[in-house]
Design a protein around this nucleic acid. Sequence first.
DNA 1: TGCTCTACGTGACCACCGTCACGGCATTTC
DNA 2: GAAATGCCGTGACGGTGGTCACGTAGAGCA
Lengths: 236, 236
Amino acid sequence: MRSPYGFEIQENCINCPVRGQRQFCNVSSAALEQLQSSKSTSVYPAGTLLYIEGQAPRGVFILCNGRAKLYTSSRQGKVIILKVAVPGEVLGVEAALSNREHDETAELLESCQVNFMTTKDFMKYIGENTEAALKTAGQLTADCRAAQEGIRCLGLSGSVEEKLARLLLGWASGAAAQQGRFKVPYKHEEIAQMIGSTRETVTRILGNLKRKNVIDIKGATVILKDPDRLKELAGA
Amino acid sequence: MRSPYGFEIQENCINCPVRGQRQFCNVSSAALEQLQSSKSTSVYPAGTLLYIEGQAPRGVFILCNGRAKLYTSSRQGKVIILKVAVPGEVLGVEAALSNREHDETAELLESCQVNFMTTKDFMKYIGENTEAALKTAGQLTADCRAAQEGIRCLGLSGSVEEKLARLLLGWASGAAAQQGRFKVPYKHEEIAQMIGSTRETVTRILGNLKRKNVIDIKGATVILKDPDRLKELAGA
DNA sequence: TGCTCTACGTGACCACCGTCACGGCATTTC
DNA sequence: GAAATGCCGTGACGGTGGTCACGTAGAGCA
């Protein structure tokens, strides 16, 4: 099915071509049938809020493509990005499982296809398929590790430069990077929100790193010119 | 069975008197039989390290009583406490499930009875008992929420006073608190490690709060004298 | 050409808090 | 009793980085 969003809509999980590469969807056919029959598919534009901090959970969202940022904010309007979810992740599981309100907001960074399951259907699905329960546990495990890495970054770093260096190294070892070159699809303000700092400071420190010949920046692409020095700065 | 540790050792999960109150152990009899037959019981003194950051996982640890602190540290020796586990929690699940090395250290704060299961037995146990898989997911959910709360505290707070206020409010709403009075079983240094600060600053700020008549401190007991003011300071 | 909007760059200021240093008090150990 | 040890209290100092203010660059549009 064509869509005005620039990607194909895949309504049928059973013959989804990328299912095998997806953490949550890669299950055996029995479970898959149930997944397919209890989910509903939607497509939303960038900026859509799947759920909002403080809302009671309605269900869980499976990200079929695109990215979503999960963040919380303080009364004063300060925002911190908890993680950026990638295709194949389930969002809102913690709220559904604990039956408590969402403690983060999920916002689509691009236009995305999203599959939705009500809490009831989701509980039924994982209650009846051990495989699905284990996939869910796997998702939660990854979330935990990511959150702990976040705490490590925020709590153990002495300076913003250190946090930023850690973040850059994380991206450099990610999937989309090659030979120390990678695209940064974030604004300085968003980067600041990931490391608990401010837009100005991020701008300044990136400038410093460039001046010190540790990195180079061409548009949205970052090139690591001195990865060892960067690792030192990250406190490793 | 008596022990030199000041509590009764409970080797048999099936007739454990407090099992019903424990998050992980409160399962039906079929699962319980399997849990009982595949775990082994030990008692360790305070300060014991159940596992260490960087170690390959051997299995999971069920905390029967007492508390354990989970922390990571940087090369420079700076420590941050990720959470304090209470009885009925399973420790080391993330490493076991993801089959990657532990990314935290688990240290007993008191002498504790601990039940151990090898990774293999644990995987078998949760693979064969959906109930156990869901308990595990529940544990992971709680861990995630705790970690996210940690990120919120570290990342959204502008000042150490704010973080400390949040921490105090968290304790005040905990189980062991009543009418704004609660015991703090931590040293200033440990408190500092929870909020990513230093021993001196914690001492100073607690002193300030006392001077400003927001709290009062009698030995290890904290009394909230002005909870509303404290909430303001916490940025709520 | 002029207007608007968003993102980035940069300078000045100063509060907060990390670091170092020392002293006081309680408990333990010989 | 003396010494040692662990935890807490407090003063002085200096740097980091948050805040405010304003300038620049590029894109979109009439």
